[in-house]
Design a protein around this nucleic acid. Sequence first.
DNA 1: ACGTCTATTGGACATACGCGCAATAAGAGT
DNA 2: ACTCTTATTGCGCGTATGTCCAATAGACGT
Lengths: 204, 204
Amino acid sequence: MPRLSPSARREEIIAATLRVAAVKGLANTTVRDVAAEMGTSSGLIHHYFTSMDEVLAAAFEDAATADLTTTEAAMRSREDAADRLSTFFAAYTRIDEYGAFQMWLDAWAEASRRPALGATSRRLNVAWQHLIATTIVKGVAEGTMSCDDPEATAWRVLSLLDGLSMQLAAHPGVLQRADVLDWAMTALEAEVNLAAGTLDRPSR
Amino acid sequence: MPRLSPSARREEIIAATLRVAAVKGLANTTVRDVAAEMGTSSGLIHHYFTSMDEVLAAAFEDAATADLTTTEAAMRSREDAADRLSTFFAAYTRIDEYGAFQMWLDAWAEASRRPALGATSRRLNVAWQHLIATTIVKGVAEGTMSCDDPEATAWRVLSLLDGLSMQLAAHPGVLQRADVLDWAMTALEAEVNLAAGTLDRPSR
DNA sequence: ACGTCTATTGGACATACGCGCAATAAGAGT
DNA sequence: ACTCTTATTGCGCGTATGTCCAATAGACGT
C-alpha cells in the first residue's frame, strides 16, 4: 500500500471507520474491518491509535464536529436569533436525513462502556446544547424573546428533538419527520415566548 | 446445582440475563456471564435456547413487558387521571434507576440492525406512548384536563422524558435526575392544561 | 430397588477480537 | 549512492465468544 503522511493516514483511518460504522454500527466496527476497508494491514491502525476505543472516538468526533461546525456557520450567517434558531432546526434535520442519527444512538449506547467515546459524546452533546442556549440568550438581549433559564430550556428542546428523532431512526413509520420538526420548534417557541409559528418551518 | 423444571430454569436464565445486562449492556452479555450469574455451567443455557440471540431477545421482551405491566397496574390502582400520570412518572424513574434505561438504549441502537429486536422495541415503545395517551383521554373525559391531540402529546412527553433520560444514562452528571423528572412533568402539565405543580413530584 | 428420562456438567472446538512486535520497504535528506 | 527515519507488513499471543456434545447425576414411575 502507498506510504502516506501521518496526517493523511490518520484521516483515512477515520474515514474508513465511518464508512464501516455506517453499515455495521459504531460498536461492531473492528480493527480488521477498518484495515480491510482501507486495504492495509490491521497493525497499521495501532501505529496511529493506541486503542480501538480511541479510533471510534476520533471517528465519531470527526463526524459530529463537522456537523456541529457547519451548523454553527449556517446559524452565524443569519442576523437575528430567531432566524438562527430556524436555521438550527433546518440543519439538524438535514443531518438526520443522512443517517447520522444512528451514529449518535450508537455513541449514546456505548458511552458508558467506552470511556473515550463517552467523553467525546458528552462534550459534543453539551456543545449542541450550548449552541441553542447562547442563541436564546442573544434573542433575549435583542428583546424578541424571554426565557428564565436558557440553559435548561436548551436541554429540554434538544432532548425533545433527540427523543423524537430516536423514534424516527429506530422505528421508522411511527412518526413523521415533519411532525417531529414542527413539535420541537413549537416547544421552543413556547419556551422563549415567541408566537406559535414564528420560526420558519423548512418547506419539505 | 439444583435440578429445576424447564419452565423454572427458563425463567431463571432470563432473570440472570437481565441482571447481567443491567450492568454490561444487552449487546455485551455473554453465555458465560449468564451461566456465572446463575452459578451453573454455560452449556445449560443452550439446552433451553438454540442461540444467544434468542436469549437476549427473550430477556428484553420479558423485562420491557414486565416494566410496562407493573406500571400499568400501579396506574390502574389510582382513581383519577392526574394521579395515574403522577404514578407513571414515579414508575418510570424507579425503573430508570435500576439501570434499565441502558437496555433501551441498546435496543434502540440495535433496532435497525436486528429486525426481531426492532419489532419488539417498536411494539413496546408504542405501548408506553399509548399508556400516556389513554390516560390523558381519561383526564379530558373527567374534565380535569384539556388536550387537542392526546396521541401527539403523549409522543412529545415520552420523547422528552426519553431524551433527557438518555443524557442521564449516557453522560452522568450533566443533568440531575430530579430536574429531568420535574421538567417532563411540567411539560405534560402545560400540554394538558393543568396548573404547574399539580402532578405529585416523588419525594426523592 | 431398579430403570428411564433428562437436567446438568465440563470442556473441546472454531472463530473473532484487541494488541504488540520484529521485520520490511519506501521515501527524504545529504 | 547511501544512510536514516518511519510507514507498513504479517503474524503471533492471549483472551473471549457462540456452539456443540459425550458424560454425569438427580428425580420420578414402576
